[in-house]
Amino acid sequence: MRHLLTTKDLSKTDALRILDTATQMAATQEREVRKLPTLRGKTVVNLFFEDSTRTRISFEAAAKRLSADVINFSAKGSSVSKGESLKDTALTLQAMGADAVVVRHWASGAAYQLAHGGWLHGSVLNAGDGTHQHPTQSLLDAFTIRKHLAPGGDLEGVTVAIVGDVLHSRVARSNVYLLTTLGAKVVLVAPPTLVPVGIEPWPCDVVHTLDQALDTYEIDALMMLRVQRERMTGGGFFPSPNEYSRIFGLDGDRLRRLPDHAIVMHPGPMNRGLEISAEAADSPRSVIVEQVANGVAVRMAALYLLLAGEEAAQ
């Protein structure tokens, strides 16, 4: 593996390798000394063109726990706001000797361009590109599901429902492919206005109300998506927040209709009261806070697998 750009072309073997490595990384995080010398001398650049708290901090923590040097670069207050192109930013990072670039960008395909533009020598990790992909988020989701429902194995026989703003969600796209590759069945639940055009070839089912999903499927993991209001310029996606909540929100009543073993997930940040009620978010079934902790382990695994091998092999 040279880059981690999308979950669509990730093989089952590679995905399980990342999850297994993450399991070992998670174990090291329970020690008194949580820092490992593994990536000493490597430089990881966090290149963020879009706001992010948890992903950036999570990557930063992961790189630091592996002893890599971390340079944080956010587009605000940088030369990008003076009009510098992605290419010139990349060439600058290359000159600084970046071994890995973690990139978050508002444009779909930015990570691919950075990896294949011939500008950078190092590995590129996609930390979210537009409405396209967010592979480490789906890997941490898969890690969390696996830990609770299928320890040590693949996700064969597990049904995962992903509910809400699928249209704007790179988390949903990444998860549809990764979870399917791992053997899970994925059901998307969204109003027709928030289902992307051209969804037919995606390897998943689509239903249009949460109640219908709860009636039709035996759901093992319920993943609530954030309603991305900042991407809904112009409006018209649903009549009112209240109506959205009524049809797609997870409240206490719907929570109790899930099987006893089912877990509730959310990639964060949550809109409490919109897609998820406080009762559901804070219930013992909710693994939302655990997802954050797992994110560090999964990102440590990704950085290790991309950076540790032989230079010549790349």
């Binding site: 070992q24 174990a27 490992l36 540790a308 091998g309 032989e310």
Partner: peptide, 21 residues
């Protein structure tokens, strides 16, 4: 005691799987 992450030849060999400690 898995020592993979403490090796001094990590960057000279193919990526190794990490074992259990």
């Amino acid at each position: 005691l898995d020592i993979t992450m403490y090796r001094d030849d990590l960057f000279k060999n193919p990526t190794r799987a990490i074992g259990t400690t």
